[in-house]
């Protein structure tokens, strides 16, 4: 797994590449916690190149969302691949997370 982070104004756009499983989640969490500690409270995850997400991965998304919620932050996802989208649908995460088709839609959501 690799992470590419870019910042647009107060929004962090985080691109996750590869697999988010029990092994890579620790690294992922460390990176995200780093962003939150920097004061980032608007996170958009670019899921275009995320091929697989395990329950451990879902758990760290949940943790992120909870942390941001406490500080009135926002989290959004866009460009979910079919397999990842299926996991989100099945686990009901689509009910608590904002999922978008494109980055424009996601940033628009953040800014309103």
């Amino acid at each position: 797994m690799e992470i590419e982070v870019k910042k647009e104004l107060d929004i962090f756009i985080i691109k996750i590449i590869g697999r988010l499983d029990a092994v890579t989640t620790t690294e992922f969490e460390a990176a995200i916690n780093g962003l939150i500690a920097e004061g980032g409270n608007k996170l958009i995850f670019d899921m275009g190149e995320l091929q697989y997400v395990s329950s451990a991965g879902l758990r760290s998304f949940l943790g992120t969302a909870k942390s941001l919620k406490a500080g009135n932050g926002l989290v959004a996802f866009f460009s979910l691949q079919e397999s990842v989208n299926k996991v989100f649908q099945m686990s009901g995460f689509n009910k608590i997370f904002k999922l978008f088709n494109s980055m424009e839609e996601a940033t628009k959501f953040m800014n309103t």
Partner: peptide
């Protein structure tokens, strides 16, 4: 949030039970 079960009818017809469930519990 669990994997949808399958219903196997006596006549052999088989199907997944419902597409989308609710959120996982404990979240």
């Amino acid at each position: 949030g669990h994997n949808p079960p399958l219903v196997i009818r006596k006549d052999g017809d088989i199907s997944f039970l419902g597409e989308a469930g609710g959120l996982v519990i404990g979240a």
